[in-house]
Computed example of a mutant assay.
Amino acid sequence: MVTRRIILRTALALAVTVAGVLGYLDVHGDFQRWSDNSALDGACDGLLDRDVVRGVLGSGEVEVHDRGDGDLVAKCQVDVDGGGSAEVSVLDTASVAGSRDSLYRANLSDVVSVPVGHGWSGLFGADMEDPKDSFDSPTEHATTSLVLDCVESSQVDGLSVTVRTKLRDATLDNPANRPQYARIATSTAARVSEKLGCGAKIGKDVRRLGLPVSEDEYEPLRTAGGTCSGIPTARGVSVATETDRGGAPYEICRLADADVSTRYILSARFGPYAQEAYADYQERSYGEGMPSPDIPSQQRDADGPVSWSTAKCPDGVALFTLQAAGDRGVDRKDTAESPGFAYERAALGAFAERSAEAHRCSAPAAL
Rank of each mutant, 00 (worst) to 15 (best):
T3A: 11
R4S: 12
L12E: 05
L14E: 07
T17G: 08
V18Y: 03
V21K: 06
L22K: 10
D30C: 07
D30A: 12
F31I: 14
Q32I: 12
R33H: 01
W34R: 04
S35D: 12
N37S: 12
L40Q: 03
L40T: 07
L40F: 06
L40H: 05
L47D: 06
D49H: 15
D51V: 15
V53C: 00
R54V: 04
R54C: 03
R54S: 07
G55C: 09
S59K: 09
G60S: 01
E61N: 13
E61W: 01
E61D: 08
V64M: 06
D66Q: 09
D66M: 13
V73S: 00
Q77G: 11
V78K: 10
G83D: 11
A86Q: 07
V90Y: 03
V90T: 06
S95M: 03
S95Y: 01
A97E: 14
G98Q: 07
R100F: 08
S102D: 12
Y104M: 01
N107A: 14
L108N: 06
V111M: 04
V114G: 02
V116T: 06
G122W: 05
A126M: 14
D127Q: 05
D127W: 12
D130Q: 10
K132S: 14
T139D: 13
S145E: 00
S145T: 15
E152N: 09
S153M: 10
D157M: 06
D157H: 04
G158Y: 03
S160W: 11
V161P: 06
V163G: 04
V163C: 00
R168N: 09
N174L: 14
Q180T: 15
Q180M: 13
R183N: 08
A185S: 08
S187R: 06
S187T: 00
A189R: 01
G199W: 04
A200D: 02
V206D: 00
R207Q: 15
L209F: 11
L211I: 02
L211R: 14
L211Y: 13
V213F: 02
V213K: 10
V213W: 07
S214E: 15
E215L: 09
E217C: 00
E219L: 15
G226I: 10
G226Y: 11
G226C: 13
I231C: 07
T233E: 13
G236H: 06
V239D: 01
T243Q: 02
T243Y: 05
D244V: 11
D244Y: 00
A248T: 13
R254G: 08
L255R: 02
A258G: 15
A258I: 05
V260A: 14
R263L: 05
Y264M: 14
S267F: 06
S267E: 04
S267H: 12
A274P: 09
E283V: 13
S285H: 12
G287L: 09
G289V: 07
G289E: 08
P291H: 10
S292E: 03
S297A: 14
G304W: 10
V306L: 12
T310L: 10
P314A: 08
G316D: 01
A318E: 06
L319P: 02
A324C: 05
A324F: 07
A324R: 04
G326A: 11
R328L: 09
V330C: 05
T335K: 03
P339G: 02
E344P: 08
A346P: 11
A347Q: 01
A347E: 05
L348G: 00
G349H: 00
A350N: 07
F351H: 05
A352Q: 04
R354V: 02
E357V: 13
A358T: 15
C361K: 03
L367P: 12
